[in-house]
Design a protein around this nucleic acid. Structure first.
Lengths: 241, 241
DNA sequence: GCTTATTATTTGTGATCACACAATCACAAA
DNA sequence: TTTGTGATTGTGTGATCACAAATAATAAGC
């Protein structure tokens, strides 16, 4: 218990410093705490199942309990964190069946969104997506953790081209639940290469304004990635249960 | 300003009493406050655009600010309430385009869920849905406000038969945003009759385990209802803007 | 020595207080 | 009459305190 809490505090502090280097500056304190916690959960710094205590996080971040409380309860309503009957907060652990359900929903919704994007995408948006595609490829070759970040930006740049903000909101929620398990993926080079092939197919489908092809390419991307993740997740889930 | 706040307080108190008559008993105070506020928003007691103050609600419910604060911030993350730059909370007002976007998402997701339900539905579930269908029909003939409640139970009983909890979560969020504008609908008898025809089609499609027909029937139900709502919403939106 | 009961610590929950910001109203000057 | 300026009120936000419940730790009993 001592080690994890210490680790958490160190992670929080490190990420706090990094996030202040970033452009994003939040007005309210609760917003900053939410941002830090959210990134820790999505990036896998806080692995699924790890406990979160309000006072611990507050101490680690040098704030009061209140902003942490707001941030954590928000993550609870978003499904990234669970409130156990033991009165403890834990990062949500996805069961294999739940993982597969979210995978199927992602294929349906993100595929649909990409299909809509193919109909509305502008030349500038397409340019931006192509450069992002190159950044993802570069990040996938070097063993960099930033791969997941670039991959995220690549996907959401496509979805934004559909001009459906409510769909974006839903997809963000899906990624928030899906994000932690993506960490199983970060050291798997061949899977990344497959992902790059899928990304190429997405880009060319968008360039040709072929909605059906874009939907298929998105589905292929999600499927290939999940085929790498699912066995590792299942193994991990059975061991820890 | 005086009238609305008084009205709000009265509504809250009345609904508080009614909710305690109900079976549902929440452990935490924040949960009860959330439940009350949520129902006030969904049922249209708090029309879109009305302001919510933490101290006012706390005073009306006889609690401290804290549970209200938790409940309202949760509604904000769920999209039912907005936090304006003026530092005031207001019930989210759906623009016509935003309404149509959610309508389309509902057709896609709820149609899909009904299609899945047709494949997995059991005999008991089908029985339950048929009795609920009769309750909706009865409530639609008498000019009762409970029509929306029964309609909601009818729909979610179908979606639960799909056995996809993540989909249910998404649909709940959609209804939370969609709910307030359904109040335009409550006095329109002929539209209700159309809705009943659509419901009959849904039930028979489920009885025959015809997924494609169930999807079409759901889409028809949502479309016919929105065709009644949209012009009224647009008129209201243009007048108040 | 092992089990059980009791204390102690840690947890989330709710209440209260202090602060900063925004809006509104009142009064005075042009 | 209109406009600018100051004060008052009301707002969300953050901090601190008190409490109940649950877990962990300790001590008592066999």
């Amino acid at each position: 218990m001592d080690v994890t809490s210490e680790t958490r505090i160190a992670d929080f502090a490190a990420f706090m410093a990094k996030s202040e280097q970033d452009v994003i500056e939040w007005a309210s304190l609760r917003g900053r705490v939410y941002f830090v916690l959210r990134e820790c959960v999505v990036s896998g710094r806080l692995p699924p199942g790890s406990v979160i205590t309000l006072r611990g996080v507050a101490k680690a971040l040098g704030t009061s309990m209140m902003p942490v409380r707001d941030a954590v309860t928000r993550l609870v309503t978003e499904g990234a964190v669970e409130l156990n009957p033991n009165r403890t907060f834990t990062v949500t652990r996805l069961s294999p069946t739940r993982f597969m359900e979210i995978r199927d929903i992602r294929i349906e919704i993100e595929g649909w969104t990409a299909e809509l994007a193919a109909a509305h995408i502008s030349a500038e948006e397409l340019d931006n997506i192509q450069t992002l595609h190159l950044r993802v490829e570069k990040a996938s070759k070097s063993l960099d953790v930033s791969y997941l970040t670039w991959n995220r930006r690549f996907h959401f740049s496509i979805y934004k081209a559909a001009r459906k903000p409510e769909l974006i909101t839903i997809i963000e929620l899906l990624w928030l639940k899906y994000g932690p398990v993506l960490h199983y993926f970060s050291l798997e080079d061949d899977a990344r290469l497959h992902g790059n092939n899928a990304h190429s197919a997405i880009v060319s489908a968008l360039a040709e304004r072929d909605g059906a092809a874009a939907r298929r390419a998105i589905a292929f991307d999600i499927t290939t990635a999940s085929e790498v993740i699912l066995p590792r997740l299942t193994e991990d889930y059975n061991n820890r249960a």
